[in-house]
Design a protein around this nucleic acid. Structure first.
Length: 445
RNA sequence: CGGGGCGUAGCGCAGUCUGGUAGCGCAUCUGUUUUGGGAACAGAGGGUCGUAGGUUCGAAUCCUAUCGCCCCGACCA
């Protein structure tokens, strides 16, 4: 994309309403525009990142054998009366009446609806196990939205629901979700720690939250520092292998890591003092096993081998997709702007033409841009006729992880400059080498 | 929902106390000179001062109502 043809309304000054760094940078980098309290438009740059995150979530869900569908944002109140949650949910639920005076609501989650779909179409244990999920906009009418997309009222969420014939099977689904979530966050460049949590209004027996450590996090967290070193890395996971999946879950949950809700001071104090950490975290996902809490009252049953009908065992699993933008920025930025991990960056790299209008510089930039595009890596080419400093400042703000800087001075020596946004380290090399380096970097992402 | 604050040009703000018909910086547009980390000079455009009433010869400024947004708290992903 050529910047002169793009829509990137960056701000030089900090908007007054933004308090935390991710909110400030998202506004300044022209990623979002607030339309009402806790409700945002996604401008092109923000939308690109949002889609990247969605794509990673889809890929990892597919890998775990989960099936995508799409449910509507508006739901009928009747469905929620069946589970008893219509009254339980309170003011946070946005209630709407249509022209026929029918009671509707803008869904804050989809347990009831997915259970309805399930009971309409599934009747046999032979159809199980089944895990369905979607990525859809939700609405929770927070009393006090804040921190930009981290605590909006409208938010994009991946929510998945597993249906199993037994508790044992459902716990395997739980474990599968834990591992797939760990992979998902790792691909986004995040360290998200699973922590034993409270079940809240969803209800249930077993639940873990995934927390990204950040000073601005909403939850106080207590953890063994060794848990932050755990990585899935390149290991292959067979999601059908219960023992393998369970072993990974044990590995990631056996060290102490809890939020203040479930904190146990005695267990915490048993950690060696040097590794005992108290910090703050941003919740970016949560998984639940809740058994037959919805299937029983809503009649979601399957017939088993002996001919009897049993309510299915369920769990639900969520990733805060739009919130992740904020969480990633909180975890990855400096005083000049955002630093996108390669996994979610809106463009593979930036190309800065130091002397727009110089025939050699223009040609070199165009060639680099085309070469990257041919390899499947879209660059953002700053072809504006502005001073170098302004181009650098823009690139730093929007946080592309790599920058290729092209100027007449370097070209005279046959080189361009490749700069890492994260380290700030620049290397001079021929243009072809810089293109090859970018390709090599993304080959491993 | 309790407490506090703010709505004046695209963004950040001053002006409000003490009423006299709106200003600064950045951004935008034009020109000239510049050009490897947010340039300089000259000129230009842009605001029914959140909205609606009221007081007054006269309201951004005083009064009333209302809408919106932000912060602290409680709540939440």
């Amino acid at each position: 994309m050529r910047l002169t043809r793009y829509f990137l309304p960056v701000l030089k000054e900090n908007p007054a309403e933004a308090q935390i760094v991710s909110h400030r940078y998202m506004l300044r980098a022209g990623m979002i525009k607030q339309q009402a309290a806790g409700i945002y438009s996604w401008l092109p740059l923000g939308y690109r990142v949002l889609r990247r995150i969605e794509q990673i979530v889809h890929e990892e869900q597919a890998r775990a054998g989960h099936i995508a569908l799409l449910m509507p944002t508006l739901q009928s109140a009747d469905l929620w009366r069946e589970s008893g949650r219509y009254d339980d949910y309170g003011q946070e639920m946005l209630r709407i009446t249509d022209r026929q005076d029918r009671e509707m609501l803008y869904g804050p989650t989809n347990e009831e609806m997915i259970t309805d779909i399930f009971r309409s179409h599934v009747g046999s244990y032979k159809d199980l196990p089944l895990t369905l999920y979607h990525i859809q906009w939700k609405f929770r009418d927070e009393m006090r939205p804040r921190f930009g997309v981290m605590r909006g009222r409208e938010f994009l969420m991946k929510d998945g629901y597993n249906f199993d014939v037994s508790k044992e099977d459902a716990l395997h689904a739980y474990n599968r979700h834990m591992v797939s979530y760990l992979r998902t966050y790792e691909r986004m460049g995040l360290t998200a720690i699973p922590m034993r949590a409270d079940s809240g209004p969803i209800g249930g027996e077993d639940t873990h939250e995934f927390l990204v450590l950040a000073a601005t996090g909403e939850s106080e967290v207590f953890y063994d520092e060794a848990v932050t070193e755990l990585k899935l890395g390149a290991r292959t996971v067979d999601y059908d292998d219960r023992a393998c999946v369970a072993a990974i879950c044990r590995e990631f949950t056996s060290l102490y890591a809890r939020t203040d809700e479930t904190h146990d001071a005695a267990l915490f104090d048993a950690i060696p003092a040097a590794r005992r950490k108290v910090g703050r975290g941003i919740e970016v996902g949560q998984i639940f096993y809740f058994g037959t809490k919805y299937s029983e009252p809503m009649g979601a049953t399957v017939q088993i081998a002996d001919g009897s009908k049993v309510p299915v065992h369920m769990g639900s699993h969520g990733i805060g997709v739009s919130r992740l933008l904020g969480a990633i920025i909180e975890a990855s930025h400096d005083d000049k702007g955002i630093i996108w991990p390669e996994g979610v960056t809106p463009f593979a790299c930036g190309i800065v033409n130091l002397k727009q209008g110089d025939a050699a510089a223009d040609a070199a930039c165009a060639a680099i841009y085309a070469a990257l595009g041919a390899l499947g890596h879209e660059a953002l080419y700053d072809d504006r006729d502005v001073r170098a400093g302004e181009k650098f400042a823009t690139m730093d703000l929007i946080g592309l992880p790599w920058r290729i800087t092209v100027g007449p001075r370097g070209l005279a020596n046959g080189v361009v400059e490749l700069t890492s946004r994260r380290t700030g380290i620049s290397e001079e090399m021929p243009a072809e080498a810089a293109v090859a380096r970018i390709a090599a970097i993304y080959a491993g992402v």
